[in-house]
């Protein structure tokens, strides 16, 4: 009788742990996605090209300026 009660209590306790860890995992995944979005927005070629042009007055390299060895 006592063992049965203990097992039931353990199930409840472990369920709470699973619930808490699931929440943490969900939150971590959400954070990863948020950061991924920010990184990708920052690295967007449209944005980088605009900064290169407007802030640094850069232009696309002419063919003779690019060397691959």
């Amino acid at each position: 009788m006592g063992s049965f009660a203990w097992i039931r209590l353990e199930i409840v306790r472990i369920s709470y742990d699973i619930h808490r860890l699931e929440k943490l995992e969900q939150q971590a995944r959400d954070d990863v996605n948020k950061v991924t979005l920010k990184i990708n927005e920052a690295r967007s070629p449209v944005r980088l090209e605009r900064i290169a042009r407007e802030k640094f007055d850069m232009k696309k390299p002419r063919p003779e300026q690019v060397i691959k060895l």
């Binding site: 959400d30 996605n33 948020k34 991924t36 979005l37 990184i39 990708n40 690295r43």
Partner: peptide, 9 residues
């Protein structure tokens, strides 16, 4: 590996 579509809550 650059993100093109991302889902957020």
């Amino acid at each position: 590996g650059e993100g093109l579509a991302v889902t957020l809550k």
